Every structure is written in structure tokens, then in C-alpha cells.
Lab assay of single mutants.
Amino acid sequence: GPREVTMKKGDILTLLNSTNKDWWKVEVNDRQGFVPAAYVKKLDSGTGKELVLALYDYQ
């Protein structure tokens, strides 16, 4: 199956793709996968990378 990404509340993840309104593709610890968009919030990183903050645990 697809590689699952797990996250804990407060984690910072790299946002790869947010074109789908329900599932965003993120990368964390060299793993890529989809997380519910409602579970993360975009951060203003000030760099080229888009980052998101995990609002809830997800696994």
C-alpha cells in the first residue's frame, strides 16, 4: 500500500501538494504520504519551502 505518514500534534511537515482540498501530500523524515487537510495548518516559513503544522495526531 501507500507509504503512510504519521504525525503528532505540533509536528512541522513539508507540504508537497495541496491541490486536493481534502488530502494534502506531505513529507516528514524522508517519508511521503497524504494527511487530512483539516489536520494541518499552513505556516509562513519565510523560505521557499511550504510548511504545515500538525494540529492533531494522525497515524
Rank of each mutant, 00 (worst) to 15 (best):
K42G: 04
N20W: 06
T19Q: 10
V28C: 10
K49W: 08
G48V: 08
W24L: 04
E27N: 05
V5A: 04
K25L: 15
K42W: 07
V52M: 03
L13W: 03
D30Q: 09
R31A: 12
E50H: 11
S18V: 05
I12E: 03
K49S: 10
I12V: 10
T6I: 14
L13M: 10
A37C: 05
D30E: 11
L51K: 08
W23V: 03
D57K: 04
W23G: 00
S45G: 12
K42Q: 07
F34D: 03
V35F: 02
R31Q: 12
K41H: 08
G1Y: 13
Q59F: 11
N20L: 07
W24H: 02
G33H: 07
N20P: 04
T6D: 08
V35P: 00
V35L: 03
K21G: 07
S18D: 13
T19V: 09
Q59R: 11
G48I: 07
K49I: 13
G46T: 13
Y39F: 13
V28F: 15
G48F: 08
S45W: 11
K49Q: 12
S45K: 09
E27A: 10
T47D: 15
R3A: 12
Y39W: 07
L43Y: 07
K9G: 04
D44Y: 13
P2W: 15
W23F: 06
V52S: 01
E4Y: 15
A37L: 02
N29E: 10
V5M: 15
L16K: 04
V5W: 15
R31D: 06
V28W: 10
Y58L: 04
K8W: 07
S45F: 11
G48M: 09
A37V: 05
V5N: 03
L13Y: 07
T6M: 12
N17W: 07
N20G: 09
L51C: 08
M7Q: 01
L55Y: 03
K21A: 12
Q32T: 13
G1H: 13
Y56V: 12
V26A: 01
T14M: 08
A38W: 11
L16A: 02
T47Y: 11
L51V: 08
P2T: 13
Y56D: 06
P2L: 14
V28S: 12
K41Q: 13
R3V: 13
Y58W: 14
V35C: 04
A37E: 02
G46E: 12
G10T: 01
K8Q: 07
T47V: 12
L43R: 01
P36I: 05
D22K: 13
D57F: 05
N17M: 07
K42A: 06
K9H: 04
P2D: 11
K49A: 10
D44C: 15
D30L: 07
D57L: 03
T19N: 12
L15P: 00
V52R: 00
N20E: 06
L53T: 06
D22S: 11
Q32P: 08
F34T: 04
K9W: 03
R3G: 14
A38H: 12
W24D: 00
T14H: 09
G48L: 08
V40R: 01
N29V: 05
A38R: 14
K8E: 04
S45I: 11
R3Y: 15
K9V: 08
A54V: 12
Q59N: 14
V28A: 11
I12F: 05
T14Y: 10
D11R: 02
T47K: 10
V26N: 00
F34L: 06
D57T: 06
S45Q: 09
K21P: 14
S18G: 08
G33C: 12
W24F: 05
G1V: 11
M7I: 11
A54P: 00
A37Y: 03
G46N: 13
K41C: 14
K42I: 12
Q59V: 14
G46V: 13
Q32V: 15
L55V: 06
S45Y: 11
K41E: 10
K41W: 07
K25S: 07
G33Q: 06
T14Q: 08
L43A: 03
L43P: 00
L53H: 03
D30W: 06
G1Q: 13
L15S: 02
T19D: 14
G48W: 06
K8Y: 08
Q32Y: 11
L55G: 00
L51S: 07
L53Q: 10
G1K: 12
G48C: 06
L15M: 02
L13Q: 00
L55N: 01
V26L: 04
V28Q: 11
G33A: 11
T6F: 15
Y39E: 01
D11H: 04
I12R: 04
G10F: 04
P36T: 03
V35A: 02
Y39K: 05
E4D: 12
K9E: 05
L15N: 00
L13V: 06
V52C: 09
Q59C: 11
L55A: 02
D44H: 11
D44R: 11
D57V: 03
T14W: 10
L43C: 09
A37T: 05
D44N: 12
R3E: 10
N17V: 07
N17P: 03
K25V: 14
G1P: 12
T47E: 14
P2N: 14
S18L: 04
G33L: 15
G46P: 13
T6V: 14
K49Y: 09
D11Y: 04
Q59Y: 13
L16P: 01
G10D: 04
V52K: 00
D57Q: 04
T19P: 03
G33I: 15
R3I: 12
D44I: 12
G33Y: 15
L15V: 06
G10V: 01
Q32W: 15
F34P: 01
G1M: 12
K41P: 02
S18Y: 07
R3D: 11
L16T: 04
Y56Q: 13
I12Q: 04
W23I: 03
D30P: 02
L13S: 02
L15W: 02
T6E: 09
V5K: 02
P2H: 13
G48T: 09
Y58F: 10
I12M: 05
T14S: 07
R31C: 10
K25D: 03
L15R: 00
E4S: 15
W23A: 01
V26P: 00
W23Y: 06
Y58D: 00
N20F: 06
M7Y: 04
E50V: 14
E27V: 09
G46W: 10
Y39R: 04
R31K: 12
R31N: 09
V26G: 00
V40P: 01
A37D: 02
L51I: 09
L55E: 03
L15A: 01
A54D: 00
V35M: 01
E4L: 15
V40S: 01
R31P: 01
S18F: 06
T47R: 09
K25I: 15
N20V: 04
T14I: 14
N20D: 12
A54W: 03
T6R: 12
L51F: 10
V5G: 03
L15T: 01
T14P: 08
N29M: 08
L43G: 02
K41D: 06
G10P: 01
L53D: 00
V52H: 02
D22E: 11
N17F: 05
Q32N: 07
K42R: 12
S18H: 08
N20Q: 07
D11I: 03
L15Q: 00
V35K: 00
L53E: 11
V28T: 10
D44K: 12
Q59L: 10
Q32A: 11
T6Q: 11
F34Q: 03
V28K: 14
A37Q: 04
E50K: 11
K8P: 00
L51E: 08
D57P: 06
L53N: 02
Y56N: 08
T14C: 08
D44A: 12
Y39V: 05
D44L: 11
P2V: 12
K21N: 10
P36Y: 05
R3W: 15
N17R: 06
K21I: 07
W24A: 02
V5S: 03
L55M: 08
G33W: 14
V28M: 13
D57H: 05
V52Q: 00
K21W: 06
T47L: 11
V40T: 03
L55F: 03
E4P: 15
L43T: 04
D44T: 14
K21D: 09
T47N: 14
M7H: 01
K42Y: 07
D30T: 07
D30I: 03
V40F: 07
W24I: 04
L16H: 03
V35I: 08
Y58P: 01
N20S: 08
G1T: 13
D57S: 07
P36K: 04
E27W: 10
K42H: 06
